[in-house]
Simulated assay, not measured.
Amino acid sequence: MNTFRRLALAALIPAAALSLGLSGALAQSPAPAASASPSPAPSASPAPAASASPAPVATPSPAASASPAPAASPAPAASTSPSPTAPAVAATPAPVQTADPFGLETTLESRKVVMVKGTANWDSAFDTLVDAFKALNTLLDKQGIKHAGNSMIVYTSTDDTGFTFLAEIPVEQDPKNLPKDMSVGKSPEGKALKFVHRGSYDNMDNTYEAITNHLDDKRLEAKDTFIEEYLTDPLKTAEDKLVINVFVPLK
């Protein structure tokens, strides 16, 4: 509003100055004086006295009309109503990270895999699994065979001291000249529950405890095996940054 007011005043000031200038000019112009020619000297005989009627006053030139001169029309100021502004573009909200699914029902599809059998104790479990994946990757790299999916561990039996497992990598072609402990086969299939673990392998005890509680609460009966799918490469990812899908096949 102050801007609009300043614009209006700026437009009115020149007109006011013009009006004041004209009035001042009228006030300051003197009335015309009487004729400067001297009266003739008096003759011996008394001359008739000069006419008592005063000399006519010169009519001043017509001034501007007494009505004040119209002020110059001020430049139209912007409407006092706020000018429409461009609609603000809504900021794209940051994506919200939702909780990982826990106990999601799913169906596993069988895939061709190259696998290696192994055993491990719990104290060195992760190192043993990494060594198994290294052996499989070395074989596939030598033969130029690419992965067709994420690496997996299938636990075939467990006890208090350790476990037996199959390390599996999905492939689309059969590798050749396999060592005795390796083979080509099929990954597990069928109905299962999906859980997600984030963090180190050592902390998976908490995940499996939660899985056990979930099965008890839902009164679900699981098979004697479970599968871990490594969404992050265990050979290249820091252990505390692992992301692992845990599948529990149901009876």
Results as ranks from 00 to 15, higher is better:
Leu220Glu: 06
Pro234Asn: 03
Pro101Met: 02
Leu22Trp: 04
Ala34Ile: 15
Ile13Thr: 10
Met152Lys: 07
Leu12Trp: 01
Pro42Lys: 09
Ala10Phe: 04
Asp127Cys: 07
Ala34Ser: 14
Thr225Gln: 04
Val248Ile: 13
Ala192Ile: 07
Phe4Trp: 13
Val154Glu: 12
Lys117Trp: 05
Leu12Arg: 05
Pro62Tyr: 00
Thr119Tyr: 08
Asn213Thr: 11
Glu221Asn: 12
Thr225Cys: 02
Ala17Asn: 08
Glu168His: 01
Thr164Ile: 03
Ala17Ser: 07
Phe126Pro: 08
Phe165Ile: 04
Lys236Ala: 11
Asp160Asn: 14
Tyr208Met: 13
Val246Met: 01
Lys117Phe: 11
Val196Ser: 07
Pro74Arg: 03
Glu221Ile: 12
Pro48Ile: 09
Ala99Phe: 03
Ala222Ile: 01
Ile227Pro: 03
Lys236Cys: 00
Gly103Phe: 00
Thr107Val: 10
Met204Lys: 08
Thr59Asp: 12
Arg5Tyr: 11
Ser53Asn: 11
Ser53Tyr: 10
Leu139His: 15
Ser124Gly: 11
Lys142Ile: 12
Ala8Lys: 12
Val248Arg: 00
His214Gln: 06
Pro60Arg: 08
Thr3His: 13
Asp100Pro: 07
Thr207Val: 06
Ala64Leu: 06
Val114Trp: 00
Lys241Gln: 15
Ala31Met: 09
Glu209Val: 13
Ala36Asp: 07
Pro56Arg: 08
Ala16Glu: 02
Gly103Gln: 02
Ala72His: 05
Thr225Ser: 08
Thr232Gly: 11
Phe163Ile: 12
Ala94Cys: 12
Leu12Val: 14
Glu228Gly: 04
Ala27Val: 12
Ala15Thr: 13
Ala120Asp: 07
Gly24Asp: 05
Pro95Glu: 11
